[in-house]
Amino acid sequence: MKKIINQPDHVVDEMLDGLAFAYDSIVKRIPDTTVIARHLKADKRVGLVSGGGSGHEPSHAGFVGKGMLSAAVAGQVFTSPTPDQILEGIKAADEGQGVFLIVKNYTGDVMNFDMAKELAELEDIDVDFIVVDDDIAVEDSTFTAGRRGVAGTVFMHKILGAAADSGATLEEIKALSERVNANVYSIGLALSPATNPEVGKPGFELDGDEIEFGIGIHGEPGYSRETLKPSKELAQEFVSKLKKEIDWNPEDRFALLVNGMGATPLMEQFVFTNDLKALLEGEEQLNLAFKKVGDYMTAIDMAGLSLTLLKIEEDSWIDYLNYPVDVIGW
């Protein structure tokens, strides 16, 4: 393992301090917690809290600030944060109008956030949540823990953040989150595995020229292993998988997110995006009304990328995606 770290079990703590120091105009670390919160408070909005295991930077603390999340709770690397820490995040986010939690569909995250919700309710804070499950690589969701929550979660942060900043109520945010979740689809691939600093070796193995389609953001297995192909063919594979799932028509509006997994340069992400342009705008005649490319939901040092498509069902979603924010990572 070759990493710029000190003790592996201090990585999360030191990372949070470094982040809070570097961006002290936007966020602060709540002392003795793993919560990063925005300074802005008491403008009587619904609080938004996200979080999860560390290793997905800039998720989730990178989306804390005006117009997006109120607070983000960091767990150990690839491990859900604990209920007591999530409760601290909820308290930091509470402006008296209730707090909404954005949770990715992983067994541990769902259980810990659920326990935190129960704890918050004991303290008379109204809490509701959405479990994002956008990863279409999981086909057989009856026999698994269900579709995973991956990069589509970033669109959820952005849209709900703008809605909350515009004064939406807890009930309105809950309803909006369900409509967004029903329309967001992601799929990823890996060229090489991630190494969790606390484990010290790669989470899985791939041969030199081998790639894995459908990989999860902690290296959970996908649906097939194949030999590396040109970017165009990788893009084709993603588009045909998504097309089967979404059943789109020409002129349908979509928001697109090409997301790097951590060790894939922007150069390659833009090459891949260029191939998507030809396929989605060219062949499929889709209207890509919003586009983002870069590292948003990473898997430490995994090489690879994911594609997220959000079908735009309401005009306001485009406004929300374009809504100005003051955060580290958007």
Partner: peptide, 12 residues
């Protein structure tokens, strides 16, 4: 255990 383990094992 709940406050230190995290993941699924902590709550379980």
């Amino acid at each position: 255990l709940v406050s230190k383990v995290g993941g699924a094992s902590g709550p379980l």
